[in-house]
Amino acid sequence: MDKLSVKLDVFEGPLDLLLHLIKTLEIDIYDIPIAEITTQYMDYIKMMKHLQLEVAGDYLVMAATLMSIKSKLLLPKVELLVDDSGQYEDEEQDPRAALVEQLLEYRKFKYAATVLHEKEEQRGQYFTKDPADLSEYTANLPPLEPHQVSTIDLFLAFHDVLERQKTYRTQETTISNDYETIEDKISYISKLVKYVDSGQGVPFSDLFTTYTKSEIVTTFMALLELIKSRQVIAEQENNYAPILLFKQSVKIEDNE
Rank of each mutant, 00 (worst) to 15 (best):
E120H: 08
Q148R: 10
Q87M: 14
K129E: 06
T128L: 10
R169G: 00
L104S: 02
A112E: 03
A112N: 02
L154T: 01
R169H: 06
F109C: 00
F158N: 03
H147V: 06
Y137M: 03
R169A: 09
P142R: 15
V149R: 02
F155T: 02
D130G: 09
K110P: 00
L80M: 12
E89H: 10
D160F: 09
L162Y: 08
L144V: 13
K129R: 15
R169L: 09
D178P: 05
T138H: 02
P142V: 11
D83V: 13
P142K: 15
T128G: 10
F155L: 00
K110L: 05
A112S: 04
A98K: 11
Q93H: 04
K108N: 00
Q93R: 11
Y106G: 00
Y106S: 01
Q125K: 15
T114E: 03
V100K: 08
A139K: 13
A132W: 04
R123K: 07
F109Q: 05
F109D: 00
D84F: 14
L154V: 02
L134N: 08
E180P: 03
E92F: 14
D90E: 12
P143M: 09
G124M: 14
K110A: 00
T128S: 12
P143D: 13
E163V: 11
I182T: 05
R169S: 04
E145G: 05
Q87Y: 13
F109T: 01
A139N: 02
Q165S: 07
S135L: 09
L99R: 07
P143K: 12
L80I: 09
K119H: 09
L156P: 00
H159V: 07
V82F: 13
E120Y: 12
I152M: 00
E121F: 11
S176F: 13
Q102I: 01
V100W: 07
P143N: 11
T170I: 15
A98R: 06
P142N: 12
A98G: 05
A113H: 00
D184A: 03
D83A: 10
E145W: 12
E183I: 07
E172P: 02
E118D: 06
Y111I: 03
L80Y: 12
T138F: 06
E91L: 14
E163Q: 15
E91C: 13
E145Y: 12
D133M: 02
K129S: 08
Q87C: 04
D133N: 14
D94R: 05
S85T: 11
E183W: 01
E180S: 06
K110I: 03
I152Q: 04
